[in-house]
């Protein structure tokens, strides 16, 4: 009987410990905080941007804005605060190239450099099992992925052949794909170009 009670107590304690340690948010419960850069200067590199800025005529004033009037220069504290804020870049400067859903990104998305907790800016539907469910959204609006992700983000999973990861098809699908292909020959063409099958099958037909 004592042994049984001890087991129940152990299970109860384990449940309490699990509930206490469960971590629904990145910064909750574990006693550590993700280190988020306080300002863009902590991650921004002038060196790495020098060449592209020169090529695209992005001048110093684009981020270190001076063409702004201080409404009340006599209020020194407010003027200093307004001046410092305006002379420092804001997120719009980064987002113009790195996150631009309207015009499209012209530079790689590196959201994690500033947004250390990427989940804070993640769309609500990117939750449980999103990897399996994303297809229907991606097919409905193919450009929506690139609103945040870099242009080759999709291809990195769907086209890569250098790593043995599961992408669309299981590994060894090449040897069993004939079953699915015969059941619905059009299904291949939903992702692959019309010539994709013929590249292998042209000479010997299905039996090859």
């Amino acid at each position: 009987m004592t042994m049984r009670r001890a087991r129940i107590l152990a299970v109860a304690l384990a449940l309490v410990a699990y509930a206490a340690c469960r971590n629904p948010g990145l910064n909750d419960g574990w006693g550590w905080q993700a280190e988020r850069p306080a300002t863009p200067q902590q991650t921004f590199s002038h060196e790495r941007h020098a060449q592209v800025f020169e090529r695209q005529h992005v001048e110093c004033f684009a981020c270190h804005t001076m063409a702004v009037g201080i409404d009340d220069p006599k209020n020194a504290a407010q003027a200093i605060r307004a001046s410092q804020t305006t002379f420092s870049p804001t997120k719009e400067a980064c987002h113009a190239c790195h996150y631009n859903p309207q015009a499209g990104n012209t530079a790689p998305d590196r959201c994690g450099l500033c947004h250390v907790d990427v989940r804070a800016i993640e769309p609500a539907n990117h939750n449980f099992d999103w990897v399996k469910r994303h297809a229907v959204f991606a097919k409905a609006d193919g450009g929506s992925c690139e609103g945040c992700h870099r242009p080759r983000f999709c291809e990195d999973c769907h086209s890569r052949r250098d790593e043995t990861v599961r992408t669309v098809h299981d590994r060894n699908f090449r040897f069993v794909h004939g079953i699915e292909a015969r059941a619905n020959p059009m299904v291949c063409g939903q992702c692959h170009a019309p010539t994709f099958c013929e590249g292998c099958h042209a000479k010997g037909g299905y039996e090859r």
């Binding site: 005529h57 004033f61 702004v68 409404d71 307004a82 113009a96």
Partner: peptide
């Protein structure tokens, strides 16, 4: 004062703190 179209577009897109007014120098 002169600036490229890219620079002008970036300045126009940025948010300004209270107590400031955008101006063409």
């Amino acid at each position: 004062f002169d600036a490229s179209d890219t620079t002008r577009a970036l300045v126009a897109a940025r948010a300004l703190p209270p107590g400031t007014t955008r101006r063409e120098p």
